[in-house]
Design a protein around this nucleic acid. Structure first.
Lengths: 138, 138
DNA sequence: TATAGAGCTTATAGTTAGTATAAGGTCAAG
DNA sequence: CTTGACCTTATACTAACTATAAGCTCTATA
């Protein structure tokens, strides 16, 4: 199949497929006489694997790692667990940081002080003043 | 003060200060005879404003917007509210997406199947198999 | 047969918010 | 007089694409 069909089958942009090839995630496929890339089923499976990983937020470098294990069935899969575990920790940290940020933003938003700034002048904007002097709560 | 002192006072790298200048967030300051940048208190205040915004995850383009209102005290501050509100919505969406991702990752992790793959061979790795075929739960 | 449109090819630049590196000028202290 | 800290500029790199340009190939239709 040509790159367009592979793209359709996997929900991937053709440019992204070529990008993965340049990054070494996808092998350079055979070419037809007119220099078009031709893909086989194994390419589609590999690409789906990559896209599933991306859907989990796994980085391309880490996906390269995973592909190595996928390519060597006899290898130990211990590192796969390690990789996923550290990814989980990372995602959890991100969530906590964003929750923190959200509560700070909500506090900042409450500084709007519409009551004492009825004309809505920037000079008396409680939000701008807060950003000027310090972060809320600190 | 020179750039190094400004950097120390605001907890910003000197390169970042120059970067903000190039991006138009910080004005080009006066230069001494030896071509060193010289900053005043108003520069320090502006930079702190920027850093506080960055601490809230606000993008540089949005900070440029906020600085415009900061520079025009008579202007309406309505857009400030709008900007912060949309940022809050955005952060909330990110949190929800990451929570979704986390639960998917946890499910993936449970596919490890140590029991039926005691040697830990990649060929029987439940995680790799799951990534191969589909995302967990879908 | 000419041409329009879809699809393929490559290369390059832009996105975010810096960070890293190189190569060089300035200043104070030892 | 040289060492070290500090300043200057410019360029390239990060992640994972996306956008753009310029050009080739194939098929269908006028």
């Amino acid at each position: 199949m040509k790159i367009g069909e592979l793209a359709r089958l996997t929900g991937t942009e053709t440019v992204t497929i070529r990008f993965y090839e340049k990054r070494g995630l996808m092998p350079a496929p055979a070419r037809t006489g007119n220099n078009y890339r031709t893909y086989l089923d194994e390419h589609r499976e590999r690409l789906l694997f990559i896209r599933h990983c991306r859907g989990m937020g796994i980085k391309l470098d880490e996906i390269s790692e995973l592909l190595k294990y996928r390519d060597q069935p006899q290898a130990s899969c211990e590192m796969v667990n390690v990789l996923i575990d550290s990814h989980i920790v990372q995602v959890h940290k991100q969530i906590e940081e964003l929750q923190n940020l959200e509560s700070q933003l909500l506090q900042l938003r409450h500084r709007c002080n519409q009551s004492i700034n009825p004309r809505g002048q920037a000079a008396r904007c409680g939000i701008l003043q807060t950003l000027e002097n310090h972060l809320p709560d600190t």
